[in-house]
């Protein structure tokens, strides 16, 4: 008890209490942090709805990030797919902000594959680099995307990186820690004058410098191991995947390893990054397609589907 009367113990207890209260707050009010958090937290119910849908319905899942969220016209897709397949369509989506293949792989496994909420068709929307293997944010993955059974695999992937492993474990344990990075943008984008413009300017300037530095140091090597694993996971449950390269302001082609993996796993690819050019006016924020661009692009996607026998078979079976 003498220990409890020490002033420094009281200081630490106050600190622990404040953190405890904030942890509680993070658990209760996390939905108010952003639309994205709400979207992530809706995955279990999205998967449950997909699972509960009658078998005769065509179950379609869109996986991607904000490029897919804004680049595909869901209403049009649903209507036209129904026409093409002659079945009612149950359309679900998993497109959290700033996500890539790591989030999609673990997220699909956790919320859909491991709960047996299996779609008939998956549209995997991507930009040029989202399907490439890249160092993942272990904390974000661990907190929101990786199931408990996949957690050892995630930790193993960190290859002994104490920093990444510690963050993954902390984020799994504490929602306050997992959401810590959301507070700063929430505050600064709303309250600091010129912040949005400044971050964009700096990001634009940093990108070529970063690419230049990376290309000077490391020979370009692109791998798609996680993408292949995702395709295998999906195909193991007899679902069909279509890779959809979403148009961006600058034309791009998908990396060779993506095309090769897709070919190996028999996944059709709409490589529209180079084929479809949209005027800059279709990208109001300089990154995402606007509604009319999304509709135009979705029509193109539907046209490709209608000409692909494998996909048409997936739609009709």
């Amino acid at each position: 008890m003498k220990f409890l009367h020490s002033n420094e113990t009281k200081v630490l207890l106050v600190l622990a209490c404040v953190l405890g209260v904030l942890e509680l707050g993070a658990r209760v009010f996390e939905g108010k942090l952003s639309k994205d958090v709400n979207h992530i937290r809706s995955f279990p119910s999205v998967a449950a709805t997909l699972k509960a849908a009658p078998k005769e319905r065509l179950k379609v899942l869109i996986i991607g990030n904000s490029l897919s969220r804004d680049g595909l016209d869901k209403k049009l897709l649903k209507t036209e797919l129904a026409k093409l397949s002659g079945r009612e369509v149950e359309l679900a989506a998993m497109h959290p902000d700033a996500s890539n293949i790591s989030q999609w792989y673990y997220g699909y496994r956790r919320y859909f594959d491991q709960t047996d909420s299996i779609p008939d068709l998956i549209f995997l929307g991507t930009g040029r680099s989202h399907l490439l293997d890249a160092p993942a944010e272990s904390d974000r993955l661990s907190a929101f995307y990786v199931s408990l059974s996949d957690l050892p695999q995630l930790l193993k992937e960190q290859a002994g990186d104490v920093e990444a492993i510690s963050k993954a474990i902390l984020a799994r344990t504490s929602l306050l820690f997992a959401h810590r990075a959301r507070v700063q943008p929430l505050l600064f984008y709303n309250l600091v004058p010129g912040y949005t413009e400044t971050t964009q300017t700096i990001a634009v300037r940093r990108e070529p410098l970063k690419v230049e530095a990376e290309s000077a140091l490391v020979p370009a090597s692109e791998h798609c191991v996680t993408f292949e694993e995702l395709l295998k996971t999906v195909h193991a449950k007899k679902s069909q995947v279509m890779v959809v390269a979403i148009p961006m302001t600058e034309p791009y082609v998908l990396p060779p390893c993506v095309l090769e993996s897709a070919r190996k796993e028999n996944a059709p690819v709409l490589d529209a990054g180079a084929a479809m050019r949209f005027d800059a006016s279709h990208f109001p924020d300089g990154y995402h397609l606007d509604a009319s661009g999304a509709a135009e692009f979705t029509e193109k996607l539907l046209e490709v589907i209608s000409k692909n026998p494998d996909l048409m078979q997936a739609l009709s079976k």
Binding site: P193, G194, E197
Partner: peptide, 11 residues
């Protein structure tokens, strides 16, 4: 009084 100046001063 540019955007960067406003941001810098605020931060």
């Amino acid at each position: 009084w540019t955007a960067f100046a406003q941001t810098s001063l605020s931060l």
